[in-house]
């Protein structure tokens, strides 16, 4: 099964994989070979894929995943692997977002800040788990 992860800036990932778990808007979505054609929205979070029995993960932002013809295409605005995540910068961004959460009131702003918090958390999650291993 082919997995492609594309952002507007680059093709972040493109390889044959065994299976993938994406953070769908309605919860995690596991995709195996010969999955039915599907399009769904993504929530910022962690994408995990299995290749040659090894699990790898990437932090991804909002976007869409499209599955057809044994091909999974992830369309997102952010895709970072372990080495690209700068932990201290992310922590600062998270703190900033959480601070601004106290000041704002309209639901749209809250939603926007929540998205950025989710993105930061996803990045931290991957970074920290990698260290424990």
């Amino acid at each position: 099964m082919q997995l492609d992860i594309v952002t507007p800036e680059k093709k972040a990932f493109s390889d044959e994989i065994d299976s993938v778990v994406v953070p769908g808007i309605e919860g995690e979505l596991g995709i195996l070979k010969s999955h039915a054609p599907l399009v769904t929205t993504l929530a910022p979070g962690e994408l995990r894929y299995l290749k040659d029995g090894e699990e790898h993960s990437l932090a991804i932002g909002t976007g869409v995943v499209e599955i057809s013809n044994d091909r999974v295409s992830v369309l997102t605005d952010m895709a970072l692997d372990d080495s690209e995540i700068d932990e201290s910068a992310v922590e600062k961004a998270l703190a900033r977002a959480q601070d601004s959460m106290k000041e704002i009131s309209t639901p749209e702003e809250v939603a926007a800040v929540q998205v950025s918090i989710q993105k930061s958390l996803a990045q931290l999650h991957i970074k920290r788990r990698r260290r424990r291993l």
Binding site: I25, L38, V39, T40, T41, T62, V64, S68
Partner: peptide, 18 residues
Amino acid sequence: GYLFEPSAGSVLDSIVPQ
């Protein structure tokens, strides 16, 4: 065709801003 999850409308909602 594709299956849209949760629905075609909601996927459109999220993809148009993108």
